[in-house]
Design a protein around this nucleic acid. Sequence first.
DNA 1: TGCCCCTCTGTAATCGGTTACGTAGATCCG
DNA 2: CGGATCTACGTAACCGATTACAGAGGGGCA
Lengths: 327, 327
Amino acid sequence: MTQATIRDVARRAAVSVASVSRALNGAANVHPDTRARVIAAADALGYVPHAGARSLSLARSHAIGVVLPDLHGEFFSEIIRGLDREASARGYHLLLSNIQDGRDHVIQALRAVRGRVDGLVVMAPHVDPAALAAMLPGSLPKVMINTPASKGGSTLRVDNRGGAEAITRHLLDIGRRHIVHIAGPANNSDARERYEGFKAALPQRADVHVLEGDFTEPSGAAAIAELLARKVPFDAVFAANDMMALGALQALREAGRRIPEDVALAGFDDVPLARYLSLTTIRVHMADIGTRAAARLIASVEAKDEEPTDELIVPALIVRGTTVREP
Amino acid sequence: MTQATIRDVARRAAVSVASVSRALNGAANVHPDTRARVIAAADALGYVPHAGARSLSLARSHAIGVVLPDLHGEFFSEIIRGLDREASARGYHLLLSNIQDGRDHVIQALRAVRGRVDGLVVMAPHVDPAALAAMLPGSLPKVMINTPASKGGSTLRVDNRGGAEAITRHLLDIGRRHIVHIAGPANNSDARERYEGFKAALPQRADVHVLEGDFTEPSGAAAIAELLARKVPFDAVFAANDMMALGALQALREAGRRIPEDVALAGFDDVPLARYLSLTTIRVHMADIGTRAAARLIASVEAKDEEPTDELIVPALIVRGTTVREP
DNA sequence: TGCCCCTCTGTAATCGGTTACGTAGATCCG
DNA sequence: CGGATCTACGTAACCGATTACAGAGGGGCA
């Protein structure tokens, strides 16, 4: 049995489709008896309005598109959680559209959601800003998270630079002088900003070692392996994200280095794992960012005149056992 | 500037909308020159087809609805990750619709997606099976994960009972005799099945203590606090999920119990955290379940004649440091 | 030349809703 | 009692695509 349509309901209630629509959507000009008949007919037929058709004629879908690089890592799950929390509280749904590397996928992802969503949350720190700006639809409200391109959309950015400076200063404060940085991919804007913050916090003539990882745990371990192989002396490691820090942590322990006595270790993000493993880090609180992004987006969807806003989120330094021996 | 429609493209290319549609969708009967003109016009106008309108006339949305209890915990993130991976590989999108407790929310969530998705993945271990069956749309293909109600849909179930038996036997094998179970909520079917497996593995006259938690970390800690307060003697704890096990782990350590010497501890799920904290558990591999669910659903969306299938996934026992001292 | 067939294109119906507009009937008022 | 006003409802256009059907034009063949 196929789903009943509004016309089926109209026929059964012996009224026009207009009256059904009015009755079911609570319009004022409907006689109580008519409304009752319509509701009875709808119930009897198990009528559920076709959301797709509805959004076509209303030009509103009550859905927001979420375009993320991929869904790996706790990082993105947290954003989605935050987005979903706010969206569903406000009666919106989330349409996920993840993108692999490569510009084509971004285009595909963006094309696929047109006419299905009322707005877009985009996070693509690894995509060239100019290219991204060119392919974003101009007509939809959007919120960009940690993504340089703005062009008429609101932005939400984490102060990566400031966070990296803070954590680097912390390492200096506890007396470390040979600090190694495990950076993220060079084409990732978060990675670049964190690297800049790191450099900015160091004294002029500090001796600096920087290795490039790819934000995954194994690449953190690999970086440590390389340092050890090259016999680079170091007493602190600042990894550009927590997952690489965790990889480094494992590798250091296996190499017999004591944490934090021999080597102090810090990450970035404060993924849920970090607390359990007592990792010093910068708390980014992605769920909160997701919540704010959704709130911001829905606000501009519902009030067309809203000005785009730019919000800079200053993350907090969380000192734990990998830099300071805990009580 | 509002988005161009197919009519705008048709006007600019001086052809009919039918030709535009044919040209852009690669139909056979289009003259090469016409196709070229249409593509040029579409590019010039930045035309992107309206997916909503498209799915209305095609009666296919290339989206699958995901109805989950809520998005808390790593557990659900993992499922979504798996779903998304498979779905996007096959050209589908995910529409998230999370549900709070209460039947009304389930109804709302299900109504909201009608006409927007080609199929449904439902996971609602806490909803009364009969009620759920009654409100599920009969017309859509669906896959239920760990959810009793079937009624024409495929199911994917984790062998909770078998897993719980295996882990309980493991605790017995390492010589523990005073095993405490921290159960999940009684209205949750996963929780009930795990509890049954636990009971089934125990010898007839074992002395059993069972406390009820709510699958959250604090409730695991609270359970331990209660046991200690009541001075119940125990040498092993089996928590119905990993998060409660982690809460228990913290509480036990704070109480000065050595793990695993004084108390062996086991969880269920193998969330990513478990490996880091060396928690013995049952690997459920939710991402894999998500992948299979999506694959199964898409198969039945694309071939209407598919028979529903029922798959039972047997999870593996993962022995780690909280039950057996590691090398 | 006449007829058929094939290729290409356009017209208009359709998907399932919403809603502007028009109208029938009741009520009110001078 | 006639006209204005209001309430309740139906007709049909519309949202933006797809596609069945029909028709125009050209080529091949008897």
